[in-house]
Amino acid sequence: MELIPILSTIILVATISTFILAIGAYILYKVREAKEVRTTVPKPAEVKGELVTPAAGQEQFPVYAEKSSGYASQRQPIFMSQEKQASQAKFTPQPQQYNAEKSKEAAVASERSRVKSTGSKFLKYTSEGYVTPQEDSKKTGALKWR
């Protein structure tokens, strides 16, 4: 007998059985679920809970914390209270949508305010942006006699 008809018959029987099994199991699940007693309680606006935290005075356990930069092998033990640990969250940058136009405008505005504060009338454009002639002469490192 050829192999394909045998395999086809096996697969056909398996598929039909799976169908029957799936539908049967589903009906059984629905019947079981229907037997369970269900009550819908309206949810209150607020509920009372209980907060269980470690008692005061336990915070001074030595905590081996990683530094925010450096290699993993360079860890040093430091004392870290609960408050200190929480403050580390400041390392997380403030999430904000990047807006190329806004950042450009902000950069130009800060440049203008900086230049205004110098009180200079003329500006020189360099690779580092607009600078006053005085600043530029300082940077160019004009020769000075000792």
């Binding site: 509920v47 809970g49 030595p62 081996y64």
Partner: peptide
């Protein structure tokens, strides 16, 4: 489990909030 439990890299604070089922 509440307290400062010994973790792999130090003591870790474990707190618990008990609330009605919601």
């Amino acid at each position: 489990l509440v307290g400062y439990q010994k973790g792999l890299r130090g003591n870790i604070k474990v707190s618990l909030i008990n609330k009605p089922n919601g």
